[in-house]
């Protein structure tokens, strides 16, 4: 770890250097992300409109089917986020670039968030459909294990360790966890597969409008996740900068700052 971290060594982020100054205090917004944020809001509003108003209720599940428009996109985002964590972790171990470590961490947080959406919407859907909030369904069980596993990953990221050591441990965990997802998924599926068939078949036929709404939900969640990821990454980057600057330097700067402003303030 060098103290030259203020100079971005990689190609990213293609943004202004996020260095604190009195004139331009660091923030995490930029023109591109603002546009992305607006796009996310518009898409989410459209998803609401299509999901709640325009799309028809399903024959057997009735209105409960509308939860699907949140549920399926959340699952997609969860898996993508955890995949990003694994890839980011691998690249961090390979290249030692802090960017990838921060990307991995940011993606994991987003994954955990959306995974909780998956579980909540899933059990809300389970109540009217299965009659219970919780069933020892293969996917439900493996998703819950997945959720707890990444809570553990986030706990490791928060350990009080030297940053490099912590990043390296988190990276190992980030990669291994993704492999675990696969093992857990198949073992649980096999376990429940012996007792009962799947609740959903691939042959479940979907109305055109419903399919479109699912697609719309997927788009809006992806954009939302991208927006969150970028901002979370920038926040971690700033947090790391602060850590890097160190107390001594911060104090020195503050002293110089107050001296300067004090003098200027009086002369004004």
């Amino acid at each position: 770890m060098s103290t030259t971290a203020a100079e971005p060594t990689g190609a990213e982020p293609g943004d202004k250097p996020l260095v604190a100054s009195a004139v331009n205090p660091p923030h995490t917004g930029s023109v591109a992300t603002r546009r992305l944020g607006v796009a996310a809001i518009v898409l989410l509003a459209l998803t609401l409109l299509f999901g709640l108003v325009l799309s028809p209720p399903e024959v057997s599940q009735r209105d409960a089917v509308r939860l699907m428009y949140l549920h399926l996109p959340s699952i997609a985002v969860t898996y993508l986020a955890f995949l990003t964590t694994a890839v980011g972790s691998a690249l961090y171990l390979r290249k030692g670039s802090v960017y990838w470590d921060l990307v991995a961490g940011a993606a994991a947080e987003i994954g955990v968030l959306f995974c909780s959406f998956v579980l909540v919407t899933g059990s809300l859907w389970g109540k009217p459909t299965w009659g219970v909030y919780w069933q020892w369904d293969a996917r439900l069980t493996s998703t819950t294990v997945l959720f707890v596993m990444y809570l553990g990953y986030l706990a490791v990221r928060r350990l009080e360790l030297p940053p490099e050591v912590r990043s390296r441990r988190a990276a190992v965990l980030g990669i291994v966890s993704f492999g675990n997802v696969i093992i857990v998924h198949y073992s649980v599926k096999w376990w429940r597969g012996l007792h009962q068939g799947q609740t959903f078949g691939a042959d479940t036929k979907m109305d055109g409008l419903m399919l479109f709404t699912v697609f719309l939900g997927l788009m809006s969640f992806l954009v939302l996740a991208a927006w969150l990821l970028i901002h979370r990454f920038r926040v971690s980057w700033l947090a790391r900068e602060v850590e890097q600057v160190g107390l001594a330097q911060a104090l020195a700067e503050r002293r110089a700052e107050t001296d300067a402003t004090g003098l200027v303030g009086r002369s004004r």
Partner: peptide, 28 residues
């Protein structure tokens, strides 16, 4: 997984959180 938390004060609480979900397939 225990090595991840080696030498930390939080080890006793962290290791179960990390290890138990991973060992779910083994338990099964």
């Amino acid at each position: 997984y225990a090595a991840l938390a080696a030498g930390l004060r939080v080890r006793d609480t962290l290791v179960p959180l990390l290890v138990l979900p991973v060992l779910a397939p083994v338990l099964l």
